[in-house]
Amino acid sequence: MSAAVRPALVQAVARSRRRRASRRGLVIATLAVLAVAAFAVTLMAGQTFYPPRDVVRVILGEQVTGASFTVGRLRLPRAVLAVVAGFSFGLAGVTFQTMLRNPLASPDIIGISSGASTAAAIAIVSLSLGGAQVSIFAIVSALVIALLVYTLAFRDGVAGTRLILIGIGIAAILDSITSYVLSRAAEWDLQEAMRWLTGSLNGTAWEQVLPALVALVVLTPVLLSRARDLSAMQLGDDTASALGVRVERTRITVIVAAVGLIAFATAAAGPIAFVAFLSGPIAARLVGAGGSLLVPAGLVGALLVLAADFAGQFAFDTRFPVGVVTGVLGAPYLVYLIVRTHRAGGSL
């Protein structure tokens, strides 16, 4: 069939596609460089400044007076968790937003993060569990909540708006349970409470970071392998099926992987407010609507958490947990989206 196509047209198509691909590559590279830079800055700067040389030596395992403790034990796990949690939230968030074709369908809006957070709070504060048990508790709970929201929203297929409204309701219930659990806790600890309410990286230890890091390494390839299927599903379930996507199978794989990312990251850092919700739209603004947003959104998430945590620690008189800073950024965008949706005529 291709015999009749003008070579000039084919070249124009190829050129246009390459232009887009190189812009996308540039954005991804820039985001990665910025994330690495932010990571480096968080390791060096703080109450005491350590030069890059000291930081590198600490990372290589050498003993450096002062730096070994401050950088190695305090800053490094915290910065790694910032990257891991940020990437997990960004990736999982944009996955949900793409699959449900709605920026409001992010896991932190529709109750999934709240499910993980409530479970983690109960596990740690009420049941005195730790480590892997908390993660398992969080992931089971997040999956159950995802299933619950999906089932409640299901009627002749899942309608986006209904799912989002039900999810917001469930999130509100879960958040109040979290508050209740924290307020009844014997040893009331404000830092701990803030972690489960808005997300915090304070006092991060390697034991917290590791499960989230492993989850990220395992689940990211699963999601990336479904990136093309997700792009096809943006065109509607019927179109995607016609393009050869097994829609139901893809949906289940993707939901389990994304919920896993959310749950592990939340068990480590709490439900860092709005990172999942914001990263996708920011990434879309940067790379355009054409290609997959998974990697760019993950990088945006990592960058957001690194920057917000740094700002929360040092930009104000009081130290704020990271979730307070991202919350301040995210809330106006949520209002903007709802207002815009309302103007556009009701469908969320």
Partner: peptide, 21 residues
């Protein structure tokens, strides 16, 4: 191939990207 009655175009997608899908 099938073109359903009401396919959904993602917001802001260009013609070239859509056809490419």
């Amino acid at each position: 191939g099938l073109l359903p009655q009401s396919p959904v175009a993602p917001e802001g997608i260009t013609v070239l990207d859509l056809v490419g899908r």
